[in-house]
Design a protein around this nucleic acid. Structure first.
Lengths: 127, 127
DNA sequence: CAGCATCCTCTTCGATACTG
DNA sequence: CAGTATCGAAGAGGATGCTG
């Protein structure tokens, strides 16, 4: 499960885990949280993974509880982050299609991992 | 990669994905985000995964940038969420050890998945 | 259909200082 | 060593209403 074969950048400084104190790559967590830490992002990605490209209102229907403002804002951010693509389908009537980029689609294992975790290791019953 | 064999609860209502519009389980995302959505949680879990149980100050040193206040607050939450355990090691001098619960350790694939994703599908160069 | 503008509130996080 | 108290700034997110 460990990313032994990293391509772009490295997670670990070296192969060995000596006494010499190495730290996590803070930037990696920041990037991850930009996507995974915001309330609607993961839910949007999930819907696009499951059902493929769709329009604004289709998303609004499927992403339970989202308002048009939050959906719009989230989609803009996800676009900026290179996770979703927005394509103009037609002008009259106005129709757009949101889809996942390659970067976005690459989130699939993460989304499923998270869902699996929630399902299999439910909330702590005690508190 | 899909959670075909769920034990506790179900992600999908049925086996079939008909026209009849099913939605994601909102609660699952909420739980996930309680852990993954807060700034320090994932970084703390990461350190405990990598280095095993450790004390408060060891964590403070390893989790780059965290203050004692945020670390304390985060650990309390993670304890409440059943992700980390706090064990009193000795009274004089005061020593505690934080470790992952089973639920916490089960986050390993998610943490690695997220890190892999950041590393392999780096930030969008364009914007 | 596919959004944006405003306003408002609640939470999160950081800085700083202090305690058993 | 292992935390807590207090303060303040920033941002996320919701409600509502309007636009091309």
């Amino acid at each position: 499960m460990r990313p032994e074969s990293t391509t772009a950048r490295q997670v670990r400084p070296g192969g060995t885990n000596g006494e010499s104190f190495f730290v996590e790559p803070p930037a990696a967590f920041d990037e991850a949280q930009e996507v995974v830490g915001r309330k609607w992002h993961l839910r949007i990605v999930y819907q696009l993974l499951e059902h493929g490209p769709m329009g604004f209102n289709a998303l609004e229907d499927r992403v339970v509880g989202v308002s048009s403002k939050m959906l719009s804002e989230s989609l803009s951010r996800l676009e900026d982050d290179g996770v979703v693509d927005r394509d103009l389908v037609s002008d009259q009537p106005l129709r757009v299609a949101y889809s996942l980029t390659e970067r976005g689609a690459a989130l699939e294992p993460v989304v499923w991992g998270l869902l699996r975790w929630s399902v299999e290791h439910g909330p702590a019953e005690d508190a």
